[in-house]
Design a protein around this nucleic acid. Structure first.
Lengths: 150, 150
DNA sequence: ATAATACTTGCAGGTAAATTGCATTTGGAG
DNA sequence: CTCCAAATGCAATTTACCTGCAAGTATTAT
């Protein structure tokens, strides 16, 4: 009887048709631990095992294609990614310093049905992204804090 | 007495603190005519007058900063832009072929107040982006139409 | 109208993000 | 254990976009 249960990401990966390689499991593990959306660079830097950046890029791309992770546009100069979880949440991003916080509990999913009823040319909505851009209190007051996100 | 009134974009630019140069007026004119969000590349290609790509990038960046145009993330590999108009609308994008259509009439703006009431660290929301990603009927049926957006 | 000047633009060169091709390695089905 | 499709590493490349600087131009005041 194992003291530690097998990595649940193994099953998730296999179900999506991918092999459960150490690199993929490491990427998913990082994303789970991270409280913030991660950039490709952010993941690459945190990979303790020697893993080629190209591999990370490929992993991210595949995970996003299969809907295991989600791409997020924080208006930095590169994409960010987040594990897709049950509780749908969105982001509030400062356009000055990049500070970010989560917005919980939206009911956007309910709009999917309405939209599909109105459109003539789409048959399915898989995902949505909703981000709000504004000024955090620090930046509104004119101070210039450092970027808080890579 | 002029038969054609002066370009209204001239005033918009000056109010934002920019000179009303031919390049800027041309960019704004394209964006107004275009039914779809345009990429920097898309604008550069359509500029009939010889205008350096760098200039277009700079124009776009400034217009977006001052809120005259709006950046949109269609999950292509580059940003798209759209004139900011009164009637707030969003987008429905096919993740297979890139087909896109507008979604009219959302009441997301009303959420701004709610969000600001809940957050401790933000003082202003200037903009939001809401896009829906799914499959258009063509792609859902397995046909592979060409990309419809640059 | 004209001149002054601050904003704009074009050009050259550069950077960072992400991709591609190909040879080698490896997970996992049998 | 064996085998092969899938995954990885490496080198090179593409793409999107930016910076510095000299030359040009829209606007303001004369």
């Amino acid at each position: 009887m194992p003291l530690v249960s097998k990595n649940p990401f193994t099953d998730i990966l296999r179900k999506a048709g991918y092999k459960a390689t150490p690199s993929r499991l490491a990427v998913l593990s990082f994303m789970q631990k991270s409280k913030k959306p991660l950039s490709a660079q952010g993941i690459i830097e945190r990979m303790d095992k020697n893993c080629d950046p190209v591999t990370v890029y490929r992993i991210i791309k595949n995970l996003a294609l299969s809907g295991i992770i989600k791409q997020i546009d924080l208006r930095h100069n590169h994409a960010h990614y987040e594990l897709v979880d049950q509780n749908d949440h969105h982001h509030l991003i400062c356009t000055e310093c990049g500070r970010m916080e989560d917005i919980a509990g939206c009911e956007i999913e309910e709009m999917h049905k309405t939209i599909l009823r109105k459109t003539a040319s789409f048959s399915e909505i898989q995902q949505h992204s909703l981000e709000f851009y504004g000024l955090c209190k620090g930046c509104a007051l004119g101070s210039k804090p450092k970027e808080v996100l890579s």
